[in-house]
Design a protein around this nucleic acid. Structure first.
Length: 214
DNA sequence: CACCAGGCAAGTA
DNA sequence: TACTTGCATGGT
């Protein structure tokens, strides 16, 4: 190997440092989809409470949530924050699946990757990170999920330019790495783990960051 | 007390 | 096109 592939080097380093992260938490594909919307700008412990509220009421299924009045859904997901807007976003997503995929999540997940992605992005409230999280973690598609940590960590370590947008960051990773869902799954989870523990927004730089020296 | 979390869309100039 | 603001709970 003569190529200087820092993206792969960082992955190997993080995997050795943290080990496997076992993402995405959730028992079913549908639960992953719900979690993907609820976790927008919100920490997972709050999302977990919201999902448990849905489960405890026996409502964690496509049909049950589609039939549930929006205000009732908002009440259930209250702990996840932004509960009114997230209830609307979940409903929008379920309606798209109802209209374009006969109400079958699996048909969306089995559709051609870029067709499914476009349909997800057409939903009000589903942006690129939410769409890609669904495609990767529920659909097992090889697409790289970019988040705020990805930008912060890699720009701080000068592996990405500060002004990169979502699509350009995603392209940087996907052109440098083998297109394997298992790799993208673990890599994104490792980035979130690193960000939480070593790359907080308020801290200018972390002396003990495992990436120092890469 | 301030700050932030596994974003996104609408409003403004 | 490029900023800014609203959305909102719960943990540190």
């Amino acid at each position: 190997m003569t190529e200087d592939n820092r993206f792969l080097q960082v992955y190997d380093l993080l995997y050795r440092f943290f080990g496997p992260q076992e993402w995405w938490p959730g028992d079913t594909r549908f639960e992953v989809v719900v979690g993907a919307v609820l976790t927008q700008n919100t920490n997972w412990s709050n999302v977990s409470k919201a999902i448990n509220n849905i489960k405890n009421n026996g409502l964690l299924s496509f049909e049950a949530l589609l039939a549930l009045p929006i205000d009732d859904l908002a009440t259930l997901i209250r702990p996840s924050g932004y509960f009114n807007i997230k209830a609307r976003r979940l409903k929008n997503l379920l309606l798209m699946i109802e209209q374009r995929y006969q109400g079958q999540l699996d048909l969306l997940l089995q559709d051609h990757l870029m067709t499914g992605r476009m349909n997800l992005l057409s939903v009000q409230g589903v942006g690129p990170e939410t769409a890609d999280s669904i495609l990767l973690y529920a659909g097992n598609h090889p697409i790289f999920v970019v988040d705020a940590y990805t930008h912060r960590i890699f720009s701080r370590h000068q592996l990405l330019a500060d002004e990169c947008d979502y699509d350009s960051i995603q392209e940087s990773f996907m052109s440098a790495l083998p297109l394997e869902s298992a790799l993208f799954n673990e890599y994104h989870a490792l980035i979130v783990r690193l960000g939480k523990e070593y790359c907080r927004k308020s801290k200018p730089r972390c002396e003990c960051c495992p990436l120092n020296g890469v």
